[in-house]
């Protein structure tokens, strides 16, 4: 949209029009370069995870337990099982609290109160996840005297709460006021109107928010170090140490064996596919919704 050649320059320093145009071109080039720089890492990381992970990706990886260090073969079954259990339980614990909190923020708190709680929820979302792991350690591991899948699940639940709470809040905000009014005008008590009319109307958006939260906690490592700890055998007991994919990737990546490295790449591929599929799906749905509502 730069002015065509010969177009009289405006009052902003008409003298140096040539230099101004050069600056303009230079800056636009640099900004484009920044965009390019930003997407290069994504492409590189995805490419390497795919190239390195694919060869080691097989059924044994997710069905077999680890073999003694340095031996070939084996898999990361305990990590797959542990991740499923802890992410599942964490979601189960975290999302009801989060959705209810989101409802309170949007439907009940009122102007100032809503702003204050939103602020705190946003702050909670920014807390390093490793400190949430420490919290769960002090809250559950220390009193119970044992690292456990439960402690890991609780840590993950705390991480998913602010994500889902804010999404719920926003999605409820997209439900037109006329829907609430229609319900109130029928003599339906507010809470019934919210639960049976407003919440379903925001349902798809909230579900996608939950999926996004699941994708996030599925990739978390730091909060599990002091809670779930890790485990070489498949364990489904919540009271005992439990393995998780990110934990396993960390251990294998830091170890000296090629077979470990190969499995770390393959496990990363599984994790990345899972997380990206979830995030992409949710983002598309969220975007469609946001647009169709406005």
């Amino acid at each position: 949209m730069s002015a065509p050649a010969g177009f009289p320059a405006g009052p902003i320093g008409g003298r140096n029009i040539r230099r101004r145009r050069a600056t303009d071109r230079l800056m636009r080039g640099l900004l484009g370069l920044a965009a390019l720089l930003a997407i290069v890492p994504l492409v590189l990381v995805l490419a390497f995870v795919l190239i390195q992970g694919l060869p080691a990706l097989n059924l044994a990886l997710i069905t077999q337990s680890p073999v003694p260090a340095g031996f070939p073969g084996g898999g990361v079954a305990p990590a797959v099982v542990g991740t499923l259990i802890m992410v599942g339980l964490g979601t189960l614990i975290g999302t009801p609290v989060a959705v209810l909190a989101g409802i309170y923020i949007r439907e009940y708190a009122g102007g100032r109160g809503a702003t204050a709680i939103r602020f705190l929820v946003d702050v909670l979302a920014g807390v390093p996840t490793i400190t949430i792991g420490l919290f769960a350690y002090g809250l559950i591991v220390v009193p119970s005297g044992s690292f456990s899948g439960l402690a890991g699940a609780v840590a993950l639940a705390i991480i998913i709460v602010p994500i889902v709470a804010r999404i719920t809040d926003e999605m409820l905000g997209l439900v037109p006021g006329s829907v609430r009014e229609a319900a109130y005008a029928l003599g339906i008590p507010p809470w019934r109107a919210i639960v049976r009319v407003v919440l379903p109307a925001a349902g798809a958006g909230i579900v996608t928010g939950i999926l996004l939260g699941v994708a996030r906690i599925a990739g978390e490592t730091a909060p599990l170090i002091f809670t779930a700890l890790g485990n070489d055998t498949v364990s489904t007991s919540l009271g005992e140490p439990m393995d998780a994919l990110p934990l396993r990737i960390w251990v294998y990546a830091s170890g000296p064996y090629d077979s470990w490295h190969a499995q770390a790449w393959a496990a990363s591929l599984v994790l990345v596919l899972l997380v990206l599929a979830f995030s992409l799906l949710t983002r598309f749905i969220l975007r469609r919704r946001a647009r169709s509502r406005m």
Binding site: E181, A182, V197
Partner: peptide, 17 residues
Amino acid sequence: IRQRIGMVFQRPNPFPT
């Protein structure tokens, strides 16, 4: 009161779901 006094709005607002 709202049960006893019904209301119809300017824009039709059926429950979307």
